[in-house]
Design a protein around this nucleic acid. Sequence first.
DNA 1: TACATACAC
DNA 2: AATGGTGTATGTA
Length: 769
Amino acid sequence: MSKLTAQGSSLISTMAINDNKAGMEGLNKEKINQIIFEASKGSKFFENEQKKEEQLNQKILEQQILISSLSSAMLFHGLKEADELIEKLKACQDLSHTIVHVDMDAFYAAVEMRDDPRLKDKPMAVGGMSMLSTSNYIARKYGVRAAMPGFIALKLCPNLVLVEPNFTKYTAVSQEIREIFAQYDPNFSPMSLDEAYLDLTEHLIYRRGSSNLCRIFLLRLKTDNSSIVVNDLECTCNLNAVLRPSVINLEELKINSVSSENLQEYLNSLDFSNFNLPKDCQVCNKKLPPFSLKLYDTTVEDAVLEMRNRIEQRTFLTASAGIAPNTMLAKVCSDRNKPNGQFQIHPDVQEIEEFMKNLPIRKISGIGKVTEKLLGSLNISLCSDLYKQRALLYHAFSSLTFQYFMKITLGMGSTSLEKDEERKSLSTERTFAEISDPAQLYEKCAELCQHLAKDLNEEQLMGKTVSLKIKTISFEIKTRSHTLQCYTNDEKIIFNAAKQLLKVEIDSVKQSLLRLRLMGVRMSKLVPQASNQVSIVSLFHQSNRLTSTASRTNTHNFNIQKTDFDEKDFSTSINILEANDPVLESTMTTRHSQKSLFQKTQSPQKKSIESGMKNSIMKFVSKSERCSDKIANNCYVESNIKVENNNNLRNLDCENSSSTSLKLQSNSKSNFSNAAMQNVSQATLISSVESKQKTFISCPVCGQQKFDWPLDQLNQHMDLCLSRKTIKTILQDDKNSNKRGAVQVENDDSLPSVPKRKKTQIAVDSYFK
DNA sequence: TACATACAC
DNA sequence: AATGGTGTATGTA
């Protein structure tokens, strides 16, 4: 392995090919690594990789030192802690879910091969000279794989055909497979265009009670065993959409008279030329292809096989799937029989344990090349080794990472598919031929900011923290960030911040040039632009002791003064606000009931507003909590100063150019939420100060007061306060009930369920009616 | 809050 | 000649 060159450089372990990916088994790794090495050595990229490798080796060394310093007592302690954790984890192991991970085989490459049969028997990859997205299985035999630059791939495989990516096409195919996913789990969780997690638990219950007819699907007859051969004259529409309904409705089918055991045999014996079926597709008018009928069982295996077959019938592409009690295992399983296969781990502790025993840690999602090497230095390469070395791991890693490792050895993972949370950041970055001229660097920065602002506007988002990312021509990456005083998605404000961050970097390399190969800008701390004023008003309205001076200080040009609202008539104030919100306005006119109003206010953005508000509130509260009894007054003064300062900073941040202040005015809504938070914070603080003796925090949402509230309790309480149920209750009960304490936990099951996260719009056809 | 690192796709 | 872009999580200071 330690092949040395004349230059004294050697292969970099983290750069070497790994046989981790499917289709990479049994190839000449030695030779491949040598070619990669020869093609890379001496480049700036390679030098940077070497530097990173050295850093990693240093880290390993430090880790070794730490470990050798552990006394046996400490090791024993680590063992004890590990075993206790393991017991706890085992106690809450949940094997009741059936999670499936579906992954299209060599997706982009497969799409290109499908659409250009000339590629079918050739090694090919999707991407360009600098980077490949994916390769087909023929190319993988040569070591050509995703994330490899095209020019190196060509050295490995001179006959490699490179195909430019066509994302529009991949997105369209993705839409098709997602329609199928949705029929098995409407809440499926897509991870990318080509893969998704599904929770089949519910589906399987329905499935067991379903009639055989629901589980019969059409398969095109294959001449070839590997892939569907498409005849130019034949219809390539979704057979199970255009023809299946007619077939299933056939009088002659009479499957009820056939026993389940003999049904498949019976289906095979049917001759559809005798039946009254259309000869041509109603959609494309082409001839319908010959087909067979396949009956799928009620088991998971058959459910997943059915799904995969339907994907293939629809897209002419194959998928692989993994079935297991949690996402971590399902993901590993989907890789096991790739391509075009599936694998199941049954919900059985023994079986899971057996499976994990010989599983390389690198197969686990979340363990990459660095962690693999780090663990390798502790003689850990299999998942069972994580258990063997648990005493060491306890000391060598953070508590979170340690827990993660212990979960892995036990074969545990997430048993529910996370809800699509609001995005946390949005960014754009570009690699380019070296730029070192400051004017050109600023120009590039401006371009990126324009791009980012456009994206933010399209997503109806505003953010507070602007980050600049730069990569020098020697591949060193730096990020610099600045948090603004107000949320924005204004191009000029973003550029002003990014520009200053860039200036510092340009200035920091005195007497020489900042030579870059990449620049990027990112916006984080995001809030929805169509600010949900119901929630914000509820904050003002309900927050007690909100002084009118405090309200007016920061609202700028917002057209409604919060103090104008009649405290008693909460629903009225909401309506007024809504009528002033262009987004909500349109729904106001068509609104017939409280329900529709409610649904509107529960837009997907709602959640993040809540969490955004809560974060801001909590941040403040935690700050005020830190003020002890004695310095409560000082705290108040400091807070005033801080607000003043913020105003100054805001000017600095936002008034970068002559046109900006004007822009800001038209954008005043954006300031509102921020100003709102400050006011609320101030109000909360005032009440806190007025109480003099203790940190007296009143919930800014419901106004309920608590003495010395522990933060997590307040946090929890605010979750409830900000929840839709509560808001609905306020809407309904506002007039007759004035007691603040009424806003509490409720379990009104009659309420409509929370709309699920916004998923790709999918027409779910009536499967299992 | 700022920054770096690791990771997935 | 040539090694991506987007987003999340986590550790550290």
